[in-house]
Design a protein around this nucleic acid. Structure first.
Lengths: 248, 248
DNA sequence: AAGTGGTCTAGACCACTAC
DNA sequence: TAGTGGTCTAGACCACTTA
């Protein structure tokens, strides 16, 4: 039904997206059984391998659990993300089939205090730009992010338009350097009044707090960002394995 | 060669393990090309699907990157070390220079519900052991963890002493298998009354919630654990690099 | 032109679940 | 007995890279 074999994307991703849409629309409730692999073969006219890959993708993202002999069941409609590799928040939202959005909330020129100066590797008092944005997935508020940008080091940043969706792409376009690596801390915090309002939560409700410093090629910090995530709409996911050398 | 089609494990896991062993033995250097899918088909006498799944598993763990038209290459050490590596909570506490401690709070024999059964890959109703422990660093409460253990699969777990500090070591000693990999979700939640009391916090205060499923060699789940961290005393840290697929 | 990984098909057998 | 997911095979075509 409605699959394209030309340029829309892979078949399994189209099947995956169709299922995800069913989940998001509310047709399926938590615990409900999804179509079996055989059902998908019939409904979409694809092979079992393709149908299976779509269901496996849903599982990998934590949306469903699969029980041998029983079926595939909706577990939880949360957004989940894999930390194992560096992806911009925009890429994470996109890769899960949602339409990423952003709303510029504030934009203030300022000067670096000790904390920000250390993170951005600039002198205290150096010019920085503070940008607060509300990030959305399919129009729903997912997180608030406060970005601190070294506008002293990269003057191009002062003129940029921060109502765009992806800051990573903005960095690449305006200063011609690609995002390369990042480090981050993940913790929990109580929502302040302003964050709570943006995320449609109560003040002091728990939020997931991510502090990230991002580097572009040349190992230069380009952004220090603190993000507050709606805990019911977003969880970080990752997979861990033994580091080489200790494996058995 | 040396694959078994009986009881050692899936074919793709055996191929995967053979390749990982080659990597860890040092036969392959950073940037070296691994055997192609076609090579593995010949060498191990498996289908391309099976060979491919082994290589995909290596990529999923960040050990290799795959380039269409070129081949599969061993990732750089920095990429590998930056990717999430599996450490027990005990190791994490130790690496931060604290003296790890543990207090056994509860220990109950029970039966697996749907959620736990799916995570531990056992049947619903199968015997499981629930263990709640309070974890300490230099005597201060850091987190509460609720472990669900497949005592039906590993009867040795029933007799074990859970007042020890490291469950990973306990697993290795009692069942003779090493912890191999894990996956986890990280989110935020409000502290329940019992958790808050153990962590010396107020009820409903925000806590960092980590749900982890740990596997031992043979790819068998050994533990499904939910941990609640004191947000002022613990934050999750990690470093991110470009994904193996896009890395330069 | 040959080789590589990415995708897709159309089958097969198995263990398990539910009726 | 029928249906489910887990694994595996033996092909196929494609876009891409390298020589």
């Amino acid at each position: 039904m409605g699959l394209s074999r030309s340029s829309i994307g892979t078949l399994y991703h189209q099947v995956f997206a169709a299922l995800r849409e069913q989940i998001e629309s509310g047709d399926l409730r938590v615990g409900d059984r999804l179509p079996s692999e055989a059902d998908l073969v019939e409904d979409y006219g694809v092979s079992r391998t393709t149908a299976r890959r779509a269901l496996d993708e849903l599982r990998r993202q934590g949306l469903v659990r699969r029980e041998p002999g029983r079926g595939t069941f909706l577990s939880s409609p949360r957004l989940r993300t894999n930390l194992a590799c560096l992806r911009s928040f925009t890429e994470e939202i996109e890769s899960r089939g949602y339409e990423p959005g952003a709303r510029l909330v504030a934009r203030v020129a300022s000067r670096a205090g000790k904390e920000i100066a250390a993170k951005l590797e600039v002198r205290v008092g150096e010019e920085v730009l503070c940008v607060r944005r509300l990030r959305l997935a399919d129009g729903r508020p997912i997180f608030v992010c406060d970005s601190y940008l070294p506008s002293g080091r990269f003057p191009e940043l002062k003129e940029a338009d921060y109502s765009v969706v992806s800051l990573s792409r903005l960095f690449e376009e305006t200063i011609g350097r690609k995002v390369d690596r990042a480090y981050q801390w993940i913790g929990a915090a109580a929502a302040t009044a302003d964050v709570a309002a943006l995320l449609e939560m109560y003040q002091d409700a728990p939020v997931l707090k991510v502090e990230r410093v991002t580097f572009v090629s040349g190992d230069l910090p380009i952004e220090s960002v603190t993000a507050f995530f709606h805990p019911a709409r977003y969880q970080h996911y990752n997979e861990l394995s033994l580091s080489p050398g200790e494996a058995g």
